[in-house]
Amino acid sequence: MEKKRNMQSKELICTACPIGCRLTVFQDEKSENWFRVEGNSCKRGINYAIAEMTDPRRILTSTVKVTNSHYKRLPVRTREAIPKHLIFSCMNEINRIEVITPVRMGDILIDNIASSGIPLIASRNLE
C-alpha cells in the first residue's frame, strides 16, 4: 500500500513471495542504496522495495481490436515490463490500433510503445 507517512518514508507490501511482508522504506542518504527497508524477512524484500521506489515496472496486458476473425479481440502484452507511470499512455496506443489476422504469438504489433523502448506483442495465434 503506497500510503505516504511523510516525505521520507513509504509503506509497501512485498510481492516477492506469498508471505507479503509489510515493508517500510525510508529515504536514507547514509545507507548504501539511499534507502533503508524495514519489515522484510529476507533479502528479496530489500530488492523489491528499492525497485518499487526507484523504477517500478509492470508487464501490461490488454486486447486489441480484430476485424476479420471469429473473435473480436486479440490478447496482447508488452514483451517486458514497462515503467508503471506509462501504463495509461500505453493503453491509449493499444486502443488506437486494429489487427488483421492471421497473427502469430510473439508478432510485434507496436515497436516502441509509449516510447518505452519495449514492443507490444500478440500473445496468441489467431486465424
Partner: peptide, 25 residues
C-alpha cells in the same frame, strides 16, 4: 486460459511469466 489475458502463468513449469493464451498456446 484464453480469456485470462494477464501474465503470471507458468512460473513453476516454464520458469517464465506467460499470459493465459501463451500458456495455452
Amino acid at each position: 486460459l484464453q480469456q485470462c489475458i494477464h501474465n503470471g502463468f507458468g512460473l513453476h513449469i516454464f520458469k517464465e511469466e506467460l499470459t493465459g493464451p501463451e500458456y495455452a498456446q
